[in-house]
Structure formats: C-alpha cells, structure tokens
Design a protein around this nucleic acid. Structure first.
Lengths: 154, 154
DNA sequence: GAATAATTGTTTACCCTCGTAACAAACTGC
DNA sequence: GCAGTTTGTTACGAGGGTAAACAATTATTC
C-alpha cells in the first residue's frame, strides 16, 4: 500500500469531490434532465412519465406491477403516472380475461404518436447537450453507463 | 439523409429508451446514489450535505451564496443544509469584519474529521459499485462525465 | 374444498429535495 | 442621500419517491 514519497504528494488521500464518479454523475444527470424538461416544453412529459409511456409502447399489455418493476419504482408510485397518461387518453387500462386483479396497459393511437414526437424531441435534445462529443465518445459513454447498471446488486 | 433499404431496418427511428444516454445516466445515478446512502449508514450524510461539507473543507471561509452557486442550488435551499451541519458542530457560521451581511463558513475540527471519514467511506463505496470496471474504464467514464458538465449552457 | 398465503392495484400519509417569492438588513455607486 | 444590489432567511408549494394498510383476487397447501 505504501508508495514513494514523490507519489504521496498527489495521492495522500486528498481526494476531491471532483474526482468522485458519483459526484460527476449527479452533476451531469442534472444538466441532461434539465435540458430534457426544456426540450419537452410547457405541457410536455416529465422524465418518468415519458419512461412509462415508452415502456408501454414497447411492451403493450404490460402489467402495472411489471412496469413499476421495470422502472425501478414502487407500484404505488406508478398509479399517478398511469392516471396522468390515461387522463390524456395516451394509454388505457384494460382488464385481462384470465386474472381480474391486473390492469394491462395498452397505448392508444394518440399515445403512440405522442411517444414518437416526444422521442424525436429527446433525440434532438441529446444531439444538443452532447454536441461537444464525437459519436465514438457518446457510444463509449453509453457503454460505460450500461456497465454501471449491469453491476447493480438489487 | 435517405439510406439504403438494408440500413433502414435498424435505423428507422425505432430508438429505444435504452439507447438514450440520458436514460442510462439516470439509472446509473440512481444506483450510485442509493449505494452512497447505504454506505453512509443511518445517521450519515445525504449527498447534498456531504457536498456542502466537502466544499467548506476545501474552501474555508466560503460565503453561503458562493457555496450555493458552486453547488448549483438556490441560496434558500442551502440554509437548511448549513443549519444541519452547524447543529452537529461540523462547521460554524462566522461573521466577517468587512461585510455584516455575509456568513463565512468554517469547518470545525470535528467537521474536518467527519469529512475525512465520510470521504473514505465514499471511496470504498465507489470501489464497490464500479467493481466490474477496470481503472482505465473508470477514468474514461470520469473524463466523459466531465466533458458533459463542461458543455453546460447555463 | 377450506384455509392460508401471495399478488395486484389503490389510497393515504409522510419524507426529501428543490424552486419561487417575499423580506429585512447591509452594502455599493453615484 | 438614494436607488439598486447582495446576503441570508422564511414561508409555501411542486415534484418524486417510499412505506403501510387495504380489499379484491388468485395460488398454494393440507
């Protein structure tokens, strides 16, 4: 563990906040999220509502419990999100024949279109906030973030 | 813009949530933050309180306004954070001779020690949550996140 | 087949983080 | 001296999230 005196000067436990990945992750996330909200505009989607719609489009007839699990939030928290999307007629709660407990979520035509439009807007926004990075750098960042997620314990 | 039919199959606007940097950034941040709280334990620091203490240690006699600016939050939000740290006697609000408005923040001896201990814990936690990445990968991720922050418009 | 356990959606209550608006006190520029 | 600005502070509300309890329904176990 002990190192040369010369190295100690720059390695003597004087870790800075700026050297922590977690700190930089947080600050970067705040920037991107803030840009996301601006890109979505006034009546636009919040990140979590957009995520819920996106997953419902990708996995039609998904259960609320399954969607909550996929989003990493509690079932109780998802209720308001689905309420909001249903009130805008972007998806519907459908009963399934076999199990009278579950609510299968199905996107409406308007929901599909709203998702497409929002996704286009998000892609344009990402083009913008990462404009100082090359395509290979963006891909590298994406891969590294996926690797972080892959290591999740839960 | 138009591409060959062969390419269109994999590039026809069917962007997935998982392909968005922002989405992966959020999920990765949630994992790291959650680990941070676990690592700090019951009476430990929240991320923002830790950040405030760290910056006070690094920049003693910093003004509350300057600290808020550095943290990217409003002055009003910092009051409760400083209150908490002051109530634990980890820092003190000191009046400065020249300007009777400002409160210069100075870490106490206990504050310095608490910071050192918390930082050690955070470093151990980062060692853990990024354990499936090589040192060079971690450095790459750090550099890329810094580049994202560097492009901030605000 | 009856009893027990688990799952689903929901409501309610609560916590944390943050922003906005207003304010008094103090400072600055002119 | 006076308008404008800065500093710390309070009050209020929005937003995102968890935890606990609950009825309805389904699964499991004996």
């Amino acid at each position: 563990m002990s190192k040369h005196a010369l190295e100690e000067a720059s390695d003597n436990g004087a870790t800075d906040l700026e050297d922590l990945i977690g700190y930089n992750l947080k600050r970067a996330y705040i920037i991107v999220q803030s840009g996301f909200r601006d890109a979505q505009g006034e009546g636009g989607f919040s990140p979590r509502v957009f995520t819920a719609l996106a997953l419902t489009v990708k996995f039609p007839n998904i259960t609320q419990s399954a969607l909550a699990r996929k989003m990493g939030i509690e079932r109780s928290g998802l209720v308001a999100i689905v309420d909001e999307l249903e009130s805008k007629a972007l998806l519907a709660r459908a009963r399934v024949p076999g199990d009278r407990r579950v609510q299968a979520l199905v996107p409406t035509e308007a929901g599909q279109q709203a998702y497409d439009a929002a996704m286009a807007s998000v892609r344009a926004h990402e083009q913008d906030v990462f404009s100082n990075m090359s395509e290979s750098e963006k891909k590298m960042l994406l891969d590294l973030l996926r690797k972080v997620r892959k290591n999740e314990v839960s």
